Amino acid sequence: MDAFLSSTLAVAIAEIGDKTQLLTLFLAARFTQRNAIILGILVATLLNHALSAWFGAWLVQWIPENWAPWIIGLSFIAVGLWVLIPDKDDDDETGVLQYGAFIATCILFFIAEMGDKTQVATVILAARYDNLFWVIMGTTVGMMLANVPVAYAGNWLMQKIPLDLARWSACILFVGLGVLSIVAI
């Protein structure tokens, strides 16, 4: 259950102000089918994070056992510092919008997650914890906790959440997970 809670909290906080949250805001402004957007986010996140978690679990098998806590811990700390850098809204891939809310969300969300902080965090969390299922569920729930409210109340919500506070909270969480990974040696 540690894997689920850590994964949920880490991704939910890291996602605030992230480019995928900005993408959710864009999609909610473009399409009226909020449930299709949310389902698209869920499908894209499950696929992306399952692949990421599998990669993290595979990768940790090739790292010498005494190096793993250091690599994982320093990776958490690096992601924590990376979270402090605000994301910019990338150019919109308007070509896929013609396929409707669900397909457009699936495609754009999957692409936006490639190399994103939350994808890297998923790789690290899967390397840290032995239970892929709970890491995938946790990161997916964290992603949904951060994006579902934006799909429904986007502009209003984004004005109410202090992004600097969210970034610093995520930084502290990731650095804390990193230190705990190293100390647990």
Rank of each mutant, 00 (worst) to 15 (best):
W134E: 09
L145I: 06
T45S: 12
I111F: 13
G142F: 10
N155M: 09
T105A: 03
C106G: 02
S75H: 11
M143A: 07
W62M: 12
V150M: 02
F133L: 15
G100K: 08
I111S: 05
N48F: 08
T140H: 04
K160L: 14
V43P: 05
E65M: 03
L145M: 11
R128F: 10
A68L: 15
Q119C: 13
L39G: 09
I111M: 10
M158S: 14
G95W: 13
A78I: 15
G95L: 09
H49G: 04
P149W: 06
M114P: 01
V60Y: 01
G154Q: 12
I103M: 12
D89S: 10
P64Q: 04
A101Y: 05
W70D: 00
K88S: 07
D89Y: 07
I111A: 09
W70P: 00
N66Y: 13
A153P: 00
P149C: 08
Q159V: 14
W67V: 08
N147W: 06
I72P: 02
D91M: 09
M158I: 15
Q33G: 01
V141A: 13
T94C: 01
D92H: 15
A151V: 07
H49D: 11
L74A: 10
L59G: 00
N35S: 12
L51E: 09
I111Q: 10
I71L: 15
L42G: 00
N147P: 04
G115E: 13
W156N: 13
W82L: 07
F110D: 09
A78Y: 15
K117H: 14
V43S: 04
A53T: 08
A104Y: 07
L132S: 12
V148H: 12
E93Y: 09
G56R: 08
E113F: 08
G80L: 04
M143D: 08
Q119V: 10
F102S: 06
Y129W: 12
Q119I: 09
L108H: 01
F55K: 06
E93V: 08
P86Q: 07
R34W: 00
I111L: 09
I111C: 01
S75L: 07
V83M: 04
M144P: 02
W70R: 06
A121D: 01
A36E: 15
L81S: 04
F133W: 15
L145E: 08
N48Q: 11
L84A: 05
I124N: 07
L47M: 06
G56V: 00
A36G: 06
V135R: 06
K160G: 02
A153Y: 15
F102I: 09
G115R: 09
L97C: 06
W58G: 06
F76A: 03
A78R: 05
A50E: 04
G115M: 03
E65Q: 10
K117G: 12
V60I: 05
M137Q: 09
T140M: 05
L132Y: 09
F110L: 06
